[in-house]
Amino acid sequence: MTITLVEMTNWMILLAAEAVETTKEGGLFDFDATLPLVAVQFLILVALLNVLFYKPLTRVLDERAEYIRQNLNQAKEDSQKSEELAQKFEKQLNQARRESQEIIAQAQAEAQEQAAKNIAQAQQEVQAQREQASAEIQEQKQKALQSLESQVDTLSRQILEKLVGTELAQR
């Protein structure tokens, strides 16, 4: 192979030259009914691809975009709602805690009051019982003293009778 680059270029030129020369039958720039028919063919392809490719896929893409946007909005709304709910619950929790504290305090107070009352009552009762008991004791003592006094009378009479005799004593 002794082909140089120049020769190659020459071939190309010759080739092109010959191609243009033979315009009657062929050639590079041979326009004929191919041109309009290719154009028509291309328009048919556009129409077919429009039905088969562009329309359905565009619809799917649009629907997906819509779906994603809707979901995103929904999610945003939901998160907002959940945040609100969380805040509400927090508030309620705080309130409940406060209420429970109050209830406990109240219950404690009540219990204390009750206890105090009970203690007071018990003390009163005890006092009353004690007073009653002391009153009884007093009465018993009185009774005992009375009986003792009457006994003293009889005894002293007996002693007198014994000492001075019955006649003197009855006088």
Partner: peptide, 25 residues
Amino acid sequence: TVHGQVFITSWVVIALLLVISFLGT
């Protein structure tokens, strides 16, 4: 007259496009 070789190959190209579109959608 038309250039037959152009139509043969362009039909293959068009068929390829249509078949792929059809299968994909």
